[in-house]
Design a protein around this nucleic acid. Sequence first.
DNA 1: ACACGCATGTTATATAGTAACATCAAGCGC
DNA 2: GCGCTTGATGTTACTATATAACATGCGTGT
Lengths: 160, 160
Amino acid sequence: MNAACHHEDGAHHGLHGQALRLALTAAETRCAASQERLTLPRRRVLELLLEAHGPLKAYDLIAAFGSGGEPAKPPTVYRALDFLERQGFAHRIESLNAYVPCRLDGRGHSAAFLICDCCGAAEEFEPDLGAGIAAAAARGYAVSAVTLEARGLCPVCQVG
Amino acid sequence: MNAACHHEDGAHHGLHGQALRLALTAAETRCAASQERLTLPRRRVLELLLEAHGPLKAYDLIAAFGSGGEPAKPPTVYRALDFLERQGFAHRIESLNAYVPCRLDGRGHSAAFLICDCCGAAEEFEPDLGAGIAAAAARGYAVSAVTLEARGLCPVCQVG
DNA sequence: ACACGCATGTTATATAGTAACATCAAGCGC
DNA sequence: GCGCTTGATGTTACTATATAACATGCGTGT
């Protein structure tokens, strides 16, 4: 987000009402299927991520956590984020120090993002890792996870 | 670097003596060619990165900055790192909050790394961005920079 | 000399993340 | 039910990472 940009933050509109409840229920279901528990703080953090219009910083989550404006303690949120990342419900965007809910439920555990430097939108996409994997294999590396983050301008911000 | 790992840190041996001087001179030359100045703090930070055996944290650089053990002030080092990144002399590895000198002098401004979770080595390679660029283009994004970080085990640590 | 632009020095503060330990709650063998 | 184990949470304190804001210095062109 640079100073010259006048566009809105975030590409996604955030979930509300029925759509939000559906997404949370789906997460509950997936947890139940894998013997994990979507406990209250975990569910609350996921809810905040799903409602948001774009990537959220950890301390945004901490501030917004309490229903009545009381912040959470940092470990509460960081633990919830760890859990959500382990289960594939959320991703950390390294180059922003921020978090987003996974928009590609379940399909693979490597995240890739297109990040708009102007409006802050972060769009997740399914990376084609063929070339990177080949490079790793050529050097004898056993790769367990890949993060790919492309910075640039989204269509809207190129026009404006 | 996990607790079970007994291997040495870093894949590179770090530059010393003549090789180090050559690398610094090359950087001076490239700066002169582009009307930039490799000033003392910038040169010192680059030197520390080149000497190192692996990725260095900003506060490692801050601590090591002074020739006699006196630390630098944080802005001194962060500003130097900004400069070195702008000029392509160094890269930040987002998933480590750490910095390395560029090992692929000048060839493009997109960094890609193979990072060993066991020994901490970070090997730079030339990414094949074809697929990512295509994905971006399909969504109308204008991409200016890409970071690709693959975590896993290097050949040595797979054996050990 | 003088002003301009850029780099640096300095102080203070903001932001991000974790260690360590106490407490709580669910499942399980008996 | 009882007590044990395991995993999650609550709480305090702290470490690590990074930047804002403003003063000072330094080279360059006129």
